[in-house]
Design a protein around this nucleic acid. Sequence first.
DNA 1: CAGCAATAGTATGCGCGCATATTAATTACA
DNA 2: TGTAATTAATATGCGCGCATACTATTGCTG
Lengths: 166, 166
Amino acid sequence: MSTPPAEPGPAEPGPADPGKGLATGFASADESPGLLLWQVTNRWQAAQRAALKPYGLTHVQFVLLASLAYLQAEGTPVTQRRLADHAATDPMMTSQVLRTLESRALLTRAPHPHDARARTLTLTQEGATLANTAVAAAEACDAAFFAPLAATTPTFTAALHTLRAP
Amino acid sequence: MSTPPAEPGPAEPGPADPGKGLATGFASADESPGLLLWQVTNRWQAAQRAALKPYGLTHVQFVLLASLAYLQAEGTPVTQRRLADHAATDPMMTSQVLRTLESRALLTRAPHPHDARARTLTLTQEGATLANTAVAAAEACDAAFFAPLAATTPTFTAALHTLRAP
DNA sequence: CAGCAATAGTATGCGCGCATATTAATTACA
DNA sequence: TGTAATTAATATGCGCGCATACTATTGCTG
């Protein structure tokens, strides 16, 4: 409601304007749920970035580390593919980020026992410790970020679930 | 509710596991609103990318183009700063993307009449036409993407508004 | 009007996010 | 059993998204 007239009208053509105005309802980031979604996620990523900075982890690095800790508890060897599926990350990016984490000695990428193509991911002691510590920071960051939603958080989460796999 | 036990328990330590499980409630992308938000936005961006591909525009390029069309209708000269503020885009990225759009002859970046630092952005005829066409495609894409929310869309949009500027 | 903080825009660099394509190994099937 | 289709991982490349730092200009203040 901050922009009263939905149609600007051809009153002011501007300096040597060859065309005219825009023939759309909005698309000005004030109403479109898509643009809002994009902006909010950028804000959330910035918050996560700040929260994880003390641990030297990016958002994706943290997600893969924590997801690996989660999957590792199931016993079966965790491949990059399974980790990428669980974390909903791109396999290509997953491969690259995992090699970064390996170079930091946060995990190992040993050959898979039954599949010569695949690799078995295992957190190192240091990686497991860091994952646990970072999880607390990330969850605290999340809680603060979504606090303004208050009681409507479950509704919002349900909507996101609906949009994740319609 | 897909993962019944909140605590995996120390029943299966796995093969030569030095540490133990993960000491968190979830963080497995099934419950966290942050991770859901991230995944849904990635899906939305992929949808926008596909919808805008026929027009040779990326998501950000489209947003800047459409936002410029919107601001241009107000008469006053549009600077990069004002466009970035309106579109909530990073000024650095805005500068680079605008130069890309200028190289495609979709807009001009003339010197500002009253400020030698700034530049006045103006859509070319081709840019204005493309903006109008692409807006229709992007809005159709948005409508399809958020269709599963049905009547709850306003509630979802309100939540995003709350999270954009708390 | 002299000095200085604020501002518009840009160079550089890193890390996603993903499209495309390739290699090597596994599985499916005739 | 031999060949084809599938799959795990990766090389390459482009476009954000943003942090940091820099130049040039404006405008504020005394």
